[in-house]
Design a protein around this nucleic acid. Structure first.
Lengths: 232, 232
DNA sequence: GGCTTTGTCTACCATTTGGTAAAGAAGTTG
DNA sequence: CAACTTCTTTACCAAATGGTAGACAAAGCC
Protein backbone atom coordinates (compact mmCIF):
# COMPACT_ATOMS: atom_id res chain seq x y z
CA UNK A 1 0.00 0.00 0.00
CA UNK A 2 0.94 3.60 -0.30
CA UNK A 3 3.61 5.14 1.84
CA UNK A 4 2.39 8.66 1.30
CA UNK A 5 0.32 10.32 3.96
CA UNK A 6 -2.81 10.43 1.86
CA UNK A 7 -2.58 6.73 1.20
CA UNK A 8 -2.00 5.91 4.83
CA UNK A 9 -5.07 7.93 5.71
CA UNK A 10 -7.09 6.13 3.09
CA UNK A 11 -5.94 2.78 4.42
CA UNK A 12 -6.90 3.59 7.98
CA UNK A 13 -10.19 5.14 6.93
CA UNK A 14 -11.08 2.14 4.83
CA UNK A 15 -10.35 -0.20 7.71
CA UNK A 16 -12.35 1.80 10.19
CA UNK A 17 -15.28 2.57 7.92
CA UNK A 18 -15.53 -1.10 7.11
CA UNK A 19 -15.25 -2.42 10.62
CA UNK A 20 -16.82 0.26 12.76
CA UNK A 21 -18.94 2.11 10.28
CA UNK A 22 -18.79 5.60 8.90
CA UNK A 23 -20.61 7.48 11.64
CA UNK A 24 -18.77 5.61 14.35
CA UNK A 25 -15.43 6.63 12.89
CA UNK A 26 -14.20 10.00 14.07
CA UNK A 27 -11.47 11.95 12.35
CA UNK A 28 -9.72 12.23 15.69
CA UNK A 29 -9.61 8.51 16.35
CA UNK A 30 -8.41 8.02 12.81
CA UNK A 31 -5.65 10.54 13.36
CA UNK A 32 -4.62 8.96 16.64
CA UNK A 33 -4.37 5.54 15.04
CA UNK A 34 -2.04 7.06 12.46
CA UNK A 35 -0.13 9.13 14.98
CA UNK A 36 -0.83 12.33 13.15
CA UNK A 37 -3.06 15.30 13.88
CA UNK A 38 -6.61 15.54 12.65
CA UNK A 39 -5.76 18.65 10.65
CA UNK A 40 -3.41 16.64 8.53
CA UNK A 41 -6.34 14.53 7.48
CA UNK A 42 -8.30 17.67 6.71
CA UNK A 43 -5.42 18.97 4.66
CA UNK A 44 -5.59 16.00 2.30
CA UNK A 45 -9.34 15.62 2.36
CA UNK A 46 -11.43 18.76 2.80
CA UNK A 47 -13.99 17.04 5.00
CA UNK A 48 -15.13 13.69 6.25
CA UNK A 49 -17.47 13.04 3.38
CA UNK A 50 -14.74 13.73 0.85
CA UNK A 51 -12.62 11.20 2.68
CA UNK A 52 -15.38 8.64 2.37
CA UNK A 53 -15.70 9.46 -1.30
CA UNK A 54 -12.02 8.94 -1.84
CA UNK A 55 -12.07 5.67 0.05
CA UNK A 56 -15.00 4.50 -2.04
CA UNK A 57 -13.38 5.54 -5.25
CA UNK A 58 -10.14 3.78 -4.54
CA UNK A 59 -11.82 0.68 -3.16
CA UNK A 60 -14.30 0.38 -5.98
CA UNK A 61 -11.42 0.58 -8.42
CA UNK A 62 -9.50 -2.09 -6.59
CA UNK A 63 -12.57 -4.27 -6.32
CA UNK A 64 -13.47 -4.11 -9.94
CA UNK A 65 -9.87 -4.62 -10.96
CA UNK A 66 -9.68 -7.78 -8.91
CA UNK A 67 -12.87 -9.12 -10.37
CA UNK A 68 -11.94 -8.15 -13.89
CA UNK A 69 -8.66 -9.97 -13.56
CA UNK A 70 -10.36 -13.05 -12.21
CA UNK A 71 -12.77 -12.97 -15.12
CA UNK A 72 -9.93 -12.50 -17.58
CA UNK A 73 -8.23 -15.63 -16.28
CA UNK A 74 -11.42 -17.64 -16.12
CA UNK A 75 -12.80 -19.73 -18.94
CA UNK A 76 -16.44 -19.80 -19.86
CA UNK A 77 -19.69 -21.02 -18.45
CA UNK A 78 -19.87 -22.08 -14.84
CA UNK A 79 -16.15 -21.52 -14.43
CA UNK A 80 -16.82 -17.82 -14.45
CA UNK A 81 -19.23 -17.98 -11.57
CA UNK A 82 -16.76 -20.03 -9.67
CA UNK A 83 -13.93 -17.66 -10.45
CA UNK A 84 -15.85 -14.71 -9.11
CA UNK A 85 -16.89 -16.50 -5.95
CA UNK A 86 -13.35 -17.64 -5.36
CA UNK A 87 -12.09 -14.13 -5.86
CA UNK A 88 -14.47 -12.80 -3.27
CA UNK A 89 -13.49 -15.44 -0.76
CA UNK A 90 -9.84 -14.80 -1.41
CA UNK A 91 -10.55 -11.16 -0.78
CA UNK A 92 -12.33 -12.05 2.42
CA UNK A 93 -9.13 -13.62 3.64
CA UNK A 94 -6.68 -11.12 2.25
CA UNK A 95 -8.45 -7.81 2.47
CA UNK A 96 -11.79 -8.11 4.19
CA UNK A 97 -12.08 -4.34 4.53
CA UNK A 98 -13.00 -4.06 0.88
CA UNK A 99 -16.02 -6.25 1.36
CA UNK A 100 -16.86 -4.63 4.65
CA UNK A 101 -16.85 -1.26 2.96
CA UNK A 102 -19.11 -2.53 0.24
CA UNK A 103 -21.59 -3.57 2.87
CA UNK A 104 -21.27 -0.32 4.76
CA UNK A 105 -21.75 1.81 1.70
CA UNK A 106 -24.84 -0.15 0.74
CA UNK A 107 -26.16 0.66 4.18
CA UNK A 108 -25.30 4.34 4.02
CA UNK A 109 -27.27 4.92 0.87
CA UNK A 110 -26.82 7.92 -1.39
CA UNK A 111 -24.67 9.76 -2.10
CA UNK A 112 -22.04 7.27 -1.05
CA UNK A 113 -23.87 4.32 -2.53
CA UNK A 114 -24.38 6.10 -5.81
CA UNK A 115 -20.68 6.43 -6.35
CA UNK A 116 -19.99 2.81 -5.52
CA UNK A 117 -22.84 1.76 -7.75
CA UNK A 118 -21.57 3.78 -10.65
CA UNK A 119 -18.09 2.34 -10.32
CA UNK A 120 -19.27 -1.24 -10.21
CA UNK A 121 -22.01 -0.88 -12.77
CA UNK A 122 -20.00 -2.27 -15.69
CA UNK A 123 -19.41 -5.47 -13.77
CA UNK A 124 -23.04 -5.69 -12.83
CA UNK A 125 -24.08 -5.31 -16.43
CA UNK A 126 -21.64 -7.95 -17.57
CA UNK A 127 -22.75 -10.34 -14.88
CA UNK A 128 -26.37 -9.79 -15.69
CA UNK A 129 -25.83 -10.35 -19.38
CA UNK A 130 -23.73 -13.40 -18.67
CA UNK A 131 -26.39 -15.01 -16.51
CA UNK A 132 -29.02 -14.36 -19.11
CA UNK A 133 -26.86 -15.85 -21.83
CA UNK A 134 -26.25 -18.94 -19.75
CA UNK A 135 -29.96 -19.33 -19.21
CA UNK A 136 -30.65 -18.86 -22.88
CA UNK A 137 -28.09 -21.53 -23.61
CA UNK A 138 -29.89 -23.85 -21.26
CA UNK A 139 -26.97 -24.23 -18.92
CA UNK A 140 -28.63 -22.49 -16.02
CA UNK A 141 -32.06 -22.60 -14.53
CA UNK A 142 -34.12 -19.68 -15.64
CA UNK A 143 -34.59 -16.86 -13.16
CA UNK A 144 -34.87 -13.12 -13.28
CA UNK A 145 -31.18 -12.32 -13.91
CA UNK A 146 -31.09 -9.24 -11.72
CA UNK A 147 -32.73 -10.92 -8.80
CA UNK A 148 -30.56 -13.95 -9.23
CA UNK A 149 -27.57 -11.68 -9.13
CA UNK A 150 -28.84 -10.13 -5.92
CA UNK A 151 -29.32 -13.58 -4.43
CA UNK A 152 -25.79 -14.59 -5.31
CA UNK A 153 -24.45 -11.31 -4.04
CA UNK A 154 -26.34 -11.58 -0.77
CA UNK A 155 -25.30 -15.14 -0.18
CA UNK A 156 -21.64 -14.65 -0.89
CA UNK A 157 -21.34 -11.35 0.92
CA UNK A 158 -23.35 -12.72 3.79
CA UNK A 159 -21.13 -15.78 4.09
CA UNK A 160 -18.14 -13.53 4.19
CA UNK A 161 -19.15 -10.45 6.15
CA UNK A 162 -21.98 -11.50 8.46
CA UNK A 163 -19.72 -12.16 11.39
CA UNK A 164 -22.44 -11.86 13.99
CA UNK A 165 -24.86 -14.10 12.20
CA UNK A 166 -22.10 -16.62 11.79
CA UNK A 167 -21.40 -16.42 15.46
CA UNK A 168 -25.08 -16.87 16.20
CA UNK A 169 -24.94 -20.05 14.16
CA UNK A 170 -21.94 -21.32 16.05
CA UNK A 171 -19.60 -20.82 13.14
CA UNK A 172 -16.31 -19.29 14.14
CA UNK A 173 -14.83 -16.69 11.82
CA UNK A 174 -11.59 -18.55 11.25
CA UNK A 175 -9.68 -19.19 8.08
CA UNK A 176 -10.55 -22.85 8.19
CA UNK A 177 -14.20 -22.04 8.49
CA UNK A 178 -13.88 -19.70 5.57
CA UNK A 179 -12.68 -22.50 3.36
CA UNK A 180 -15.61 -24.64 4.40
CA UNK A 181 -17.99 -21.80 3.71
CA UNK A 182 -16.51 -21.33 0.30
CA UNK A 183 -16.97 -24.97 -0.54
CA UNK A 184 -20.52 -24.83 0.70
CA UNK A 185 -21.40 -21.71 -1.23
CA UNK A 186 -20.08 -23.20 -4.42
CA UNK A 187 -21.93 -26.43 -3.86
CA UNK A 188 -25.07 -24.53 -3.04
CA UNK A 189 -24.89 -22.28 -6.05
CA UNK A 190 -24.08 -25.22 -8.23
CA UNK A 191 -27.12 -27.17 -7.16
CA UNK A 192 -29.25 -24.07 -7.35
CA UNK A 193 -28.25 -22.93 -10.80
CA UNK A 194 -26.58 -25.54 -12.89
CA UNK A 195 -28.56 -27.70 -15.17
CA UNK A 196 -25.88 -29.95 -16.66
CA UNK A 197 -25.41 -31.98 -13.51
CA UNK A 198 -26.30 -35.24 -15.19
CA UNK A 199 -24.12 -35.05 -18.28
CA UNK A 200 -20.69 -34.17 -16.98
CA UNK A 201 -20.27 -36.13 -13.80
CA UNK A 202 -16.76 -35.44 -12.65
CA UNK A 203 -15.21 -32.48 -14.36
CA UNK A 204 -16.93 -29.42 -12.92
CA UNK A 205 -17.36 -29.97 -9.17
CA UNK A 206 -13.64 -30.17 -8.99
CA UNK A 207 -11.90 -27.55 -6.90
CA UNK A 208 -14.55 -27.30 -4.27
CA UNK A 209 -14.10 -30.92 -3.42
CA UNK A 210 -10.35 -30.66 -3.57
CA UNK A 211 -10.08 -27.82 -1.13
CA UNK A 212 -12.61 -29.32 1.18
CA UNK A 213 -10.61 -32.50 1.38
CA UNK A 214 -7.63 -30.38 2.26
CA UNK A 215 -9.27 -29.18 5.42
CA UNK A 216 -9.60 -32.44 7.28
CA UNK A 217 -9.89 -36.11 6.33
CA UNK A 218 -12.53 -37.21 8.80
CA UNK A 219 -15.11 -34.52 9.04
CA UNK A 220 -18.37 -36.33 8.35
CA UNK A 221 -20.62 -34.30 10.58
CA UNK A 222 -19.42 -35.66 13.86
CA UNK A 223 -21.18 -32.83 15.64
CA UNK A 224 -18.95 -32.91 18.67
CA UNK A 225 -20.52 -31.92 21.98
CA UNK A 226 -22.63 -28.85 21.69
CA UNK A 227 -24.58 -28.33 18.54
CA UNK A 228 -24.79 -24.62 18.98
CA UNK A 229 -24.62 -22.96 22.31
CA UNK A 230 -22.91 -19.70 21.81
CA UNK A 231 -24.51 -17.45 24.35
CA UNK A 232 -21.52 -15.40 25.24
CA UNK B 1 -48.96 -0.48 19.30
CA UNK B 2 -48.81 1.14 22.66
CA UNK B 3 -50.13 4.55 23.40
CA UNK B 4 -47.93 4.97 26.44
CA UNK B 5 -44.92 7.21 26.23
CA UNK B 6 -42.45 4.39 26.58
CA UNK B 7 -44.05 2.54 23.70
CA UNK B 8 -44.10 5.58 21.51
CA UNK B 9 -40.43 6.07 22.19
CA UNK B 10 -39.72 2.46 21.37
CA UNK B 11 -41.62 2.77 18.11
CA UNK B 12 -39.71 5.84 17.03
CA UNK B 13 -36.40 4.41 18.13
CA UNK B 14 -37.03 1.19 16.26
CA UNK B 15 -37.86 3.07 13.09
CA UNK B 16 -34.84 5.32 13.30
CA UNK B 17 -32.36 2.66 14.36
CA UNK B 18 -33.54 0.52 11.48
CA UNK B 19 -33.50 3.18 8.82
CA UNK B 20 -30.70 5.48 9.84
CA UNK B 21 -28.66 3.31 12.11
CA UNK B 22 -27.92 3.44 15.81
CA UNK B 23 -25.06 5.91 15.83
CA UNK B 24 -26.81 8.20 13.40
CA UNK B 25 -29.84 8.41 15.65
CA UNK B 26 -29.59 11.08 18.32
CA UNK B 27 -31.80 11.20 21.36
CA UNK B 28 -32.61 14.78 20.50
CA UNK B 29 -33.83 14.04 17.00
CA UNK B 30 -35.83 11.18 18.40
CA UNK B 31 -37.40 13.48 20.97
CA UNK B 32 -38.19 16.10 18.36
CA UNK B 33 -39.91 13.55 16.16
CA UNK B 34 -42.08 12.63 19.13
CA UNK B 35 -42.61 16.21 20.21
CA UNK B 36 -41.27 15.53 23.65
CA UNK B 37 -38.07 16.50 25.41
CA UNK B 38 -34.96 14.37 25.42
CA UNK B 39 -35.15 14.05 29.19
CA UNK B 40 -38.43 12.24 28.92
CA UNK B 41 -36.66 9.60 26.90
CA UNK B 42 -33.97 9.42 29.53
CA UNK B 43 -36.62 9.06 32.19
CA UNK B 44 -37.94 5.87 30.62
CA UNK B 45 -34.61 4.53 29.46
CA UNK B 46 -31.56 5.36 31.55
CA UNK B 47 -29.33 5.82 28.52
CA UNK B 48 -29.15 5.30 24.81
CA UNK B 49 -27.80 1.81 25.01
CA UNK B 50 -30.61 0.76 27.32
CA UNK B 51 -33.03 2.13 24.77
CA UNK B 52 -31.42 0.02 22.09
CA UNK B 53 -31.61 -2.98 24.36
CA UNK B 54 -35.29 -2.42 24.96
CA UNK B 55 -35.93 -2.00 21.26
CA UNK B 56 -34.08 -5.21 20.55
CA UNK B 57 -35.89 -7.10 23.25
CA UNK B 58 -39.31 -6.04 22.08
CA UNK B 59 -38.50 -6.54 18.40
CA UNK B 60 -36.91 -9.92 18.89
CA UNK B 61 -39.99 -11.02 20.76
CA UNK B 62 -42.27 -9.79 18.03
CA UNK B 63 -40.12 -11.35 15.37
CA UNK B 64 -39.99 -14.75 16.95
CA UNK B 65 -43.67 -14.63 17.74
CA UNK B 66 -44.48 -13.96 14.10
CA UNK B 67 -42.29 -16.78 12.93
CA UNK B 68 -43.57 -19.16 15.56
CA UNK B 69 -47.12 -18.46 14.52
CA UNK B 70 -46.28 -18.98 10.88
CA UNK B 71 -44.67 -22.28 11.76
CA UNK B 72 -47.62 -23.30 13.86
CA UNK B 73 -49.95 -22.75 10.92
CA UNK B 74 -47.66 -24.42 8.44
CA UNK B 75 -47.69 -28.08 7.63
CA UNK B 76 -44.56 -30.12 7.20
CA UNK B 77 -41.67 -30.45 4.82
CA UNK B 78 -41.11 -27.77 2.26
CA UNK B 79 -44.24 -25.96 3.31
CA UNK B 80 -42.41 -24.82 6.41
CA UNK B 81 -39.64 -23.17 4.46
CA UNK B 82 -42.22 -21.47 2.34
CA UNK B 83 -44.18 -20.33 5.35
CA UNK B 84 -41.15 -18.71 6.91
CA UNK B 85 -40.11 -16.99 3.71
CA UNK B 86 -43.63 -15.71 3.19
CA UNK B 87 -43.72 -14.43 6.73
CA UNK B 88 -40.55 -12.50 6.22
CA UNK B 89 -41.80 -10.97 3.00
CA UNK B 90 -45.09 -10.05 4.60
CA UNK B 91 -43.09 -8.41 7.33
CA UNK B 92 -41.08 -6.55 4.74
CA UNK B 93 -44.29 -5.01 3.49
CA UNK B 94 -46.00 -4.44 6.80
CA UNK B 95 -43.25 -3.64 9.22
CA UNK B 96 -39.91 -3.37 7.48
CA UNK B 97 -38.34 -1.78 10.55
CA UNK B 98 -38.16 -5.15 12.23
CA UNK B 99 -35.99 -6.55 9.48
CA UNK B 100 -34.00 -3.36 9.25
CA UNK B 101 -33.25 -3.59 12.92
CA UNK B 102 -32.15 -7.16 12.56
CA UNK B 103 -29.67 -6.08 9.95
CA UNK B 104 -28.50 -3.13 11.98
CA UNK B 105 -27.99 -5.18 15.11
CA UNK B 106 -26.00 -7.75 13.18
CA UNK B 107 -23.81 -4.90 12.07
CA UNK B 108 -23.39 -3.39 15.51
CA UNK B 109 -22.04 -6.57 17.02
CA UNK B 110 -21.91 -7.27 20.73
CA UNK B 111 -23.41 -6.51 23.10
CA UNK B 112 -26.47 -5.65 21.03
CA UNK B 113 -26.08 -8.63 18.74
CA UNK B 114 -25.68 -10.99 21.65
CA UNK B 115 -29.08 -10.13 22.96
CA UNK B 116 -30.77 -10.51 19.61
CA UNK B 117 -28.96 -13.77 19.07
CA UNK B 118 -30.06 -15.13 22.40
CA UNK B 119 -33.68 -14.22 21.74
CA UNK B 120 -33.75 -15.83 18.34
CA UNK B 121 -31.64 -18.83 19.23
CA UNK B 122 -34.57 -21.21 19.78
CA UNK B 123 -35.77 -20.54 16.27
CA UNK B 124 -32.30 -21.01 14.89
CA UNK B 125 -32.01 -24.34 16.62
CA UNK B 126 -35.37 -25.49 15.35
CA UNK B 127 -34.55 -24.40 11.84
CA UNK B 128 -31.21 -26.10 11.91
CA UNK B 129 -32.67 -29.33 13.20
CA UNK B 130 -35.47 -29.14 10.68
CA UNK B 131 -33.12 -28.74 7.75
CA UNK B 132 -31.02 -31.63 8.92
CA UNK B 133 -34.07 -33.83 9.31
CA UNK B 134 -35.24 -32.96 5.82
CA UNK B 135 -31.85 -33.87 4.45
CA UNK B 136 -31.82 -37.11 6.35
CA UNK B 137 -35.22 -37.88 4.94
CA UNK B 138 -33.85 -37.30 1.47
CA UNK B 139 -36.18 -34.44 0.72
CA UNK B 140 -33.47 -31.83 0.59
CA UNK B 141 -30.05 -31.71 -0.91
CA UNK B 142 -27.40 -32.27 1.67
CA UNK B 143 -25.49 -29.25 2.89
CA UNK B 144 -24.02 -28.07 6.14
CA UNK B 145 -27.29 -27.10 7.87
CA UNK B 146 -26.00 -23.99 9.58
CA UNK B 147 -24.32 -22.65 6.51
CA UNK B 148 -27.40 -23.42 4.51
CA UNK B 149 -29.37 -21.49 7.07
CA UNK B 150 -27.02 -18.56 6.69
CA UNK B 151 -27.41 -18.71 2.94
CA UNK B 152 -31.18 -18.67 3.20
CA UNK B 153 -31.05 -15.90 5.75
CA UNK B 154 -28.71 -13.80 3.64
CA UNK B 155 -30.73 -14.27 0.51
CA UNK B 156 -34.08 -13.47 2.03
CA UNK B 157 -32.88 -10.57 4.14
CA UNK B 158 -30.89 -9.28 1.21
CA UNK B 159 -33.88 -9.40 -1.10
CA UNK B 160 -35.85 -7.48 1.43
CA UNK B 161 -33.48 -4.99 3.00
CA UNK B 162 -30.75 -4.31 0.46
CA UNK B 163 -32.43 -1.27 -0.97
CA UNK B 164 -29.29 0.19 -2.44
CA UNK B 165 -28.18 -2.99 -4.10
CA UNK B 166 -31.64 -3.37 -5.53
CA UNK B 167 -31.43 0.13 -6.87
CA UNK B 168 -28.03 -0.61 -8.36
CA UNK B 169 -29.65 -3.52 -10.15
CA UNK B 170 -32.41 -1.36 -11.50
CA UNK B 171 -35.04 -2.92 -9.27
CA UNK B 172 -37.39 -0.42 -7.72
CA UNK B 173 -38.36 -0.96 -4.11
CA UNK B 174 -42.09 -1.07 -4.78
CA UNK B 175 -44.73 -3.42 -3.49
CA UNK B 176 -45.10 -5.01 -6.89
CA UNK B 177 -41.40 -5.62 -7.08
CA UNK B 178 -41.54 -7.17 -3.65
CA UNK B 179 -44.03 -9.75 -4.83
CA UNK B 180 -41.82 -10.59 -7.76
CA UNK B 181 -38.84 -10.91 -5.48
CA UNK B 182 -40.76 -13.20 -3.21
CA UNK B 183 -41.70 -15.44 -6.08
CA UNK B 184 -38.14 -15.49 -7.27
CA UNK B 185 -36.69 -16.29 -3.88
CA UNK B 186 -39.07 -19.17 -3.43
CA UNK B 187 -38.35 -20.52 -6.87
CA UNK B 188 -34.66 -20.13 -6.28
CA UNK B 189 -34.71 -21.86 -2.93
CA UNK B 190 -36.88 -24.56 -4.32
CA UNK B 191 -34.54 -25.37 -7.14
CA UNK B 192 -31.57 -25.10 -4.81
CA UNK B 193 -32.82 -27.31 -2.05
CA UNK B 194 -35.70 -29.51 -3.00
CA UNK B 195 -35.14 -32.94 -4.26
CA UNK B 196 -38.06 -33.42 -6.51
CA UNK B 197 -39.28 -36.98 -6.24
CA UNK B 198 -41.57 -36.38 -9.16
CA UNK B 199 -44.62 -37.01 -7.02
CA UNK B 200 -45.39 -33.47 -6.08
CA UNK B 201 -49.15 -33.28 -5.72
CA UNK B 202 -49.39 -29.55 -5.97
CA UNK B 203 -47.86 -29.04 -9.35
CA UNK B 204 -44.62 -27.35 -10.34
CA UNK B 205 -42.92 -25.16 -7.78
CA UNK B 206 -43.66 -21.99 -9.68
CA UNK B 207 -47.39 -22.47 -9.25
CA UNK B 208 -47.20 -23.15 -5.58
CA UNK B 209 -45.31 -19.95 -5.27
CA UNK B 210 -48.19 -17.81 -6.31
CA UNK B 211 -50.83 -19.65 -4.35
CA UNK B 212 -51.15 -17.40 -1.39
CA UNK B 213 -54.11 -15.15 -1.81
CA UNK B 214 -52.95 -11.78 -0.75
CA UNK B 215 -54.44 -10.06 2.23
CA UNK B 216 -56.46 -7.70 0.10
CA UNK B 217 -60.01 -7.62 1.48
CA UNK B 218 -59.89 -5.83 4.75
CA UNK B 219 -57.19 -3.59 5.97
CA UNK B 220 -57.33 -3.39 9.74
CA UNK B 221 -58.89 0.03 10.05
CA UNK B 222 -56.78 3.08 10.43
CA UNK B 223 -53.11 2.74 10.95
CA UNK B 224 -52.33 2.30 14.62
CA UNK B 225 -50.50 5.39 15.71
CA UNK B 226 -48.04 6.07 12.95
CA UNK B 227 -44.64 4.65 13.46
CA UNK B 228 -42.70 7.81 12.94
CA UNK B 229 -43.33 9.50 9.67
CA UNK B 230 -40.09 11.32 9.58
CA UNK B 231 -37.45 12.50 11.91
CA UNK B 232 -35.91 15.88 11.69
C1' DG C 1 -55.82 19.59 53.27
C1' DG C 2 -50.80 17.62 53.23
C1' DC C 3 -47.54 14.02 51.31
C1' DT C 4 -45.71 11.07 48.12
C1' DT C 5 -45.38 9.07 43.59
C1' DT C 6 -45.17 9.58 38.72
C1' DG C 7 -44.13 11.86 34.69
C1' DT C 8 -42.48 15.81 32.00
C1' DC C 9 -40.11 19.69 31.79
C1' DT C 10 -36.16 23.65 32.09
C1' DA C 11 -31.55 24.46 33.00
C1' DC C 12 -26.99 22.97 32.67
C1' DC C 13 -22.76 20.43 31.65
C1' DA C 14 -18.59 17.82 29.98
C1' DT C 15 -17.07 15.82 25.93
C1' DT C 16 -16.76 14.97 21.34
C1' DT C 17 -17.48 16.21 16.75
C1' DG C 18 -16.25 18.18 12.19
C1' DG C 19 -14.12 22.17 10.80
C1' DT C 20 -11.33 27.08 10.44
C1' DA C 21 -7.22 30.04 10.90
C1' DA C 22 -2.90 30.51 10.99
C1' DA C 23 1.72 29.48 12.49
C1' DG C 24 5.87 26.80 11.86
C1' DA C 25 8.99 23.40 9.47
C1' DA C 26 11.22 21.72 5.49
C1' DG C 27 12.48 21.80 1.34
C1' DT C 28 12.89 24.13 -3.71
C1' DT C 29 13.97 27.66 -6.59
C1' DG C 30 15.26 32.45 -8.00
C1' DC D 1 19.77 34.50 1.18
C1' DA D 2 14.88 35.27 0.27
C1' DA D 3 10.64 34.02 -1.57
C1' DC D 4 7.70 30.35 -2.35
C1' DT D 5 5.57 25.86 -2.14
C1' DT D 6 4.38 21.83 0.43
C1' DC D 7 3.14 19.67 4.41
C1' DT D 8 2.13 19.29 9.35
C1' DT D 9 1.27 21.33 13.38
C1' DT D 10 -0.92 24.29 17.44
C1' DA D 11 -4.72 26.96 18.79
C1' DC D 12 -9.49 27.62 18.63
C1' DC D 13 -14.52 27.11 17.90
C1' DA D 14 -19.57 26.38 17.22
C1' DA D 15 -22.61 22.83 17.26
C1' DA D 16 -24.23 18.57 18.74
C1' DT D 17 -24.07 14.66 21.77
C1' DG D 18 -25.32 11.83 25.82
C1' DG D 19 -26.26 12.70 30.38
C1' DT D 20 -27.23 14.99 35.42
C1' DA D 21 -29.90 17.87 38.73
C1' DG D 22 -33.70 19.57 40.06
C1' DA D 23 -38.10 22.35 39.46
C1' DC D 24 -42.89 21.69 38.62
C1' DA D 25 -47.47 19.76 37.78
C1' DA D 26 -50.87 16.25 38.30
C1' DA D 27 -52.60 12.53 40.42
C1' DG D 28 -53.28 9.06 44.18
C1' DC D 29 -53.44 8.24 49.14
C1' DC D 30 -53.80 9.34 54.30
Amino acid sequence: MGTGTADRILDAALASFARRGYEATSLDSLAVSLDIRKQTILYWFPNKEALLDAVIKRSAGELSQILEEALARAGGGWERVEAVVRSVFRLAARKPELLGLLREVARLGPPAATEMTAALDPLVQRASAFLEAEMDAGRMRRHEPRLLLLAIYSTVIGMVTEVEVLRALGEEPTAKSLVRRRADVLALLSSALRIDQGSTPNGPPEEAVVTERATRPGRPKAAPTTAVSRTG
